[in-house]
Design a binder for these strands. Structure first.
Length: 293
DNA sequence: AAGCGAACCTGGCTGC
DNA sequence: TGCAGCCAGGTTCGCT
């Protein structure tokens, strides 16, 4: 589920229930996710008021009234379900809410409003951490993050600097969170197809003062921004599960042009080729060999 | 230094 | 029906 648009969709779903509310209780149904929960996790959260809920790349960061920040990451299969006070109070609601699975509810937050937020994660690649808000930018998992692709500084010049001298394939460079933070496998494939760039091309071929390279990186920066924006507007992509906090599905997956479309005709106007799947650094890449060069 | 594969987990789908 | 094998939106670690 979670690349940048999906995490942003989750943030928007969680914010009404969490921002301004105080943690009234924290239930942990196991000792760890990808990592152990922080020491005294429940005690440090209980009574804290959520001042803000922000997204940094694929991370959610809740700023707390205690001087700490709660860092959340959804991994591959993490999802949140929000229940309003009314829903949470309804007998049986906890076990029958729409869209939730019977197993893998690992964390249940309750708030002073009566709202309930449940974290479910079958594969447990997600994690939760607490860190001093003052030191957030030096937190190991935040400090190394690259540029935000929807931020004001993301443009052709930024790509020029990031890709200079890089022999690594363009696909791998775009997935590298230390360079650009928030892209994942789906939106990299989609942005490259929209730009007509081959995923196997060396990243460094897009840098330099030449006009052709500049045109390409301008197109790529624009396509990345566009595809992410369109996906957020669609509520993200729901491939095999429920993406949103109310149990409904995002629908951007219906707009995929190449992702998971191996063997389908290329949707580019006039292109008669067929979408192919290859493996790059262990991940599937979907692209059109005809119009991506 | 960079780049690759494996590992971390579970579940769903495909094919025999 | 059963079971083996492969695949999955991410990140980290360890070995060339």
């Amino acid at each position: 589920m979670p690349e940048l648009p999906e995490v942003e969709t989750v943030r928007r779903g969680l914010a009404p229930a969490m921002v301004g509310a105080r943690f009234a209780g924290v239930r942990l149904n196991r000792p760890n996710l990808r990592f152990p929960f922080p020491e005294r996790f429940a005690e440090r959260l209980t009574g804290a008021r959520v001042e803000a809920l922000d997204r940094r790349a694929k991370f959610l960061v809740a700023t707390l009234s205690t001087g700490e920040s709660l860092i959340l990451h959804l991994g591959m299969s993490g999802r949140f379900l929000v229940e309003t006070a009314e829903e949470a109070a309804r007998p049986g609601a906890f076990h029958h809410a729409a869209g939730r699975l019977p197993a893998h509810d690992h964390v249940v937050f309750t708030f002073d409003s009566g709202a309930r937020v449940t974290y479910n994660d079958a594969r447990r690649f997600g994690f939760m951490q607490l860190t001093a808000t003052a030191g957030l930018e030096t937190h190991p998992q935040i400090a190394g993050l690259g540029i935000e692709p929807l931020g004001n500084h993301f443009n052709a010049d930024a790509l020029d600097a990031l890709f200079a001298g890089k022999a690594t394939p363009l696909k791998a460079a775009l997935l590298d969170q230390k360079l650009i933070a928030g892209l994942g496998n789906i939106y990299v494939c989609e942005a490259l197809h929209r730009t007509g760039l081959a995923p196997t091309r060396g990243a460094g071929t897009l840098s330099g003062a030449g006009k052709a390279a500049r045109t390409k990186r301008e197109a790529l920066a624009g396509a990345i921004r566009t595809v992410l924006t369109e996906a957020i507007a669609a509520g993200g992509s729901s491939i095999s599960d429920h993406a949103r906090t109310d149990g409904t599905l995002g629908y951007f997956q219906h707009s995929f042009r190449v992702y998971d479309r191996e063997g389908a005709p290329c949707p580019a106007p006039g292109c008669r080729h067929v979408i192919r799947r290859i493996v790059q650094s262990g991940r599937s890449t979907f692209f059109c060999p005809g119009c991506q060069k």
